[in-house]
Nucleic acid binder design. Structure first.
Lengths: 122, 122
DNA sequence: CTGTATCCACTGGGATACTG
DNA sequence: CAGTATCCCAGTGGATACAG
């Protein structure tokens, strides 16, 4: 939000930039399944994570959503998509190094969520 | 997502808990205006933040959304609401200490958003 | 001033069926 | 297997008018 500043316009500009940045983050990471998928893939670096396998193991996700979320995340360089020319074809998804570096942020959200639930329960 | 574990059920349980926690966080903090409001209030600890003032200064928010977001955040103990019995009444909102402690998380999101935008631009 | 109520357009996301 | 296409409904959120 910027620091309090005599020059309101400068502060407003800074403020807006930061708010946009925050919204960017939430848009890119806040999707219904995105962080879940990221953590799923981060725990299966050595496995072949095919579309079907992911859908089977992530309870409740539809093909439509899985397609969409994976596509979004690929565009944001968080995951990679590899088409294997078997017959019929298979596709393998993996988290990228860039994707790995957002995991700490995800962990913070998990921790805060746990703490918050405990706090609210009282 | 829990660590890789021989016992699939234990891992699944842990996994679900953590995913729930992550969703909790995103639900509580990911609203369209919530983090924005939190940062707005954190920069105005000494001011009287009335409903109208907030609405005037946060560009684009409707009364309906402002009401809803403030109510949500009050329920989550992130902000406080004080009715002042002037005539007509005024209401002042302020961030709580608990609310203040989520700001670092918000800052991380801002920073990641900035970095990510830079990364994607290339 | 501080909201609520209502209407309404748009979107997110599930179910299902279908394609390459 | 890996998606796409379609339908459809519930929930978001804006605009406007109204109420305490």
């Amino acid at each position: 939000m910027g620091t309090i500043n005599i020059d309101g316009n400068v502060q407003e500009a800074t403020c807006k930039q930061e708010l946009t940045a925050m919204r960017d983050s939430l848009d890119v990471l806040g999707g219904k399944w995105k962080l879940m998928l990221l953590r799923y893939l981060s725990n299966r670096l050595e496995e072949k994570n095919t579309f079907k396998k992911i859908q089977r193991e992530i309870e409740g996700i539809s093909a439509k959503m899985l397609t969409k979320e994976l596509k979004d995340m690929e565009l944001n360089l968080l995951i990679s998509r590899s088409v294997i020319k078997t017959k019929p074809i298979t596709v393998e998804y993996a988290i990228t190094n860039y994707g790995l570096n957002v995991l700490p942020l995800a962990e913070n959200l998990v921790q805060w969520g746990l703490d918050h639930r405990a706090k609210i329960k009282n």
